[in-house]
């Protein structure tokens, strides 16, 4: 008889404006989690320059830290890590069934707190690079 019509991807990410707090929390949490995993590899790569000697390690670190991009990426890393930790604690509470009615507020609180911590950290991270 009638064939049905599939509306495809437009139903999903095309509707991002209609996402609720919990959906954003989930997307950000997955994203930050995988960024952290990615960072872990670069972190190991940088640290392992120490295998070739103390001087090589010092030089690598000094070069990296003299670059503005690296400093900015560090601020980004902090943002990602802080959000992941705060929202991770929120998720643990949700798993325990604590404060379920405030789940959207606790997401906004995680965001706000992340923002505040990141802004406060900017002077430290960017000091001496200019």
């Amino acid at each position: 008889m009638s064939q049905s019509y599939n509306r495809g991807l437009i139903e999903d990410f095309g509707r991002w404006k209609e996402f609720s707090a919990g959906m954003w929390a989930w997307i950000f949490h997955k994203f930050t989690g995988w960024v952290l995993v990615g960072y872990l590899f670069t972190h190991i790569a940088v640290l392992s320059t120490a295998l070739t000697g103390a001087a090589a390690y010092t030089e690598t670190i000094q070069t990296l830290e003299s670059l503005l991009v690296v400093r900015i990426l560090e601020v980004g890393l902090l943002a990602v890590a802080v959000f992941h930790i705060l929202n991770g604690l929120r998720l643990l509470l949700v798993d325990l069934g604590v404060g379920l009615h405030a789940q959207d507020k606790s997401f906004y609180a995680s965001l706000a707190l992340t923002g505040a911590i990141v802004v406060a950290s900017v002077p430290t991270f960017l000091a001496g690079v200019f």
Binding site: S20, A21, G22, M23, D95, Q103
Partner: peptide
């Protein structure tokens, strides 16, 4: 379930 709460809402 990934606790997005959309169903509850």
């Amino acid at each position: 379930c990934q606790t997005q709460f959309s169903c509850t809402e």
